[in-house]
Nucleic acid binder design. Sequence first.
DNA 1: GCCCATAGGTAGACTGGTCTAACTACCACC
DNA 2: GGTGGTAGTTAGACCAGTCTACCTATGGGC
Lengths: 202, 202
Amino acid sequence: MAAHDTPPHAPAMPKRPARALLLEAASRLFYAHGMGATGIDTITAEAGVAKKSLYNNFASKAELVGAYLEARHQEWLGLYRRRVAGARTPYDRVLAVFDAYADHANVAYQHGFRGCGLLNAAAELPAGAPGRVAVRKHKEEVEELLAGHVAELLPGEDERAAGLARHLAFLLEGAMTRAGLEGNDQCLKDGRVIAGRLLAEL
Amino acid sequence: MAAHDTPPHAPAMPKRPARALLLEAASRLFYAHGMGATGIDTITAEAGVAKKSLYNNFASKAELVGAYLEARHQEWLGLYRRRVAGARTPYDRVLAVFDAYADHANVAYQHGFRGCGLLNAAAELPAGAPGRVAVRKHKEEVEELLAGHVAELLPGEDERAAGLARHLAFLLEGAMTRAGLEGNDQCLKDGRVIAGRLLAEL
DNA sequence: GCCCATAGGTAGACTGGTCTAACTACCACC
DNA sequence: GGTGGTAGTTAGACCAGTCTACCTATGGGC
């Protein structure tokens, strides 16, 4: 065999950690084709990593799914913080939440937009699954962020502010869902305009 | 053999057609666990029907999925028509669309509510799948129905009416989605109240 | 009123494939 | 020399879909 010279596969790779490669590959595949339809072998092949490495870094596919959901949540939080930091008025901070969703759609999933990844994942999960709870928490957190900014616009009117926050949360959610169905971000743009008009009427 | 007395399995069954039994069983299972997670054998067992009967009535599982989506759409249309027939004013006709969604949630899926079946199905389907197109058409039809009723409220203001219809469609969609995540119809009730306030401001 | 062809049902084995999960054995580099 | 990567194999379950073989109800011709 004379195998010791020039090992066929070690071409000065940047050598990124397998865990990150796996999570990125799984994210792409889970979002594009769903979690149930994406097999372990497909993920390891996409990541360019051995199957053993997956089970070294994650106890099971379910744990990888959990990491995927958490990563999407954190990713959105990052986009939101950036948007909200650039907003000067409470009005702009409310719309920053809408912008963060648009960023989520445009930046991360520019090719083959299919709606909110967390929501799509929840649709695949059975009723009481932990992943579903995580998605629910994410959506509640978004509504709370909206509520905080709306409260600045309506000081002393707690009940009205909460109602408006819920209104905006539903509007955003519906726009995102419809945008995913249509395959583009037109609905998200419309949703932002509608939200802006709603706030302008205050 | 003396076989002519009391055949072991023919206990005076109502003998409903296999196609209907299959579609009902598939609907329950698809909604509760998703389409990918529901196997052929599970469906035939739930329907109490032979596998051959499935392939006598449907060319493939995909065709059964298509029939499921169409049945959900028709079911919703029936609920909507009933609600809209009982509405006296354009205002009530708009809210009838919201009520039809609440009926959809409460009547059909009282046990284990998991959101809009069509939307959950779309989340499982790949980007260009025919089922996804069907769901998109359903949602567009709902928005058109809303637009028709809103046009009665805002005669001669076409653009404003279309914007309001879109606003209501997003609101309804978001409320339904969030209701599915929460597992109850509170969000749908909130959505109806918000829609009512929106219309009252006209 | 009887007979029998036929349509549509049942049960279940079987094919070829994919899935998760676990295993061994080797290798490179620190 | 040990850690963490690699490739590849195996087990066992499940998947969609096909097929054989048998059963039963209906209805038309006679």
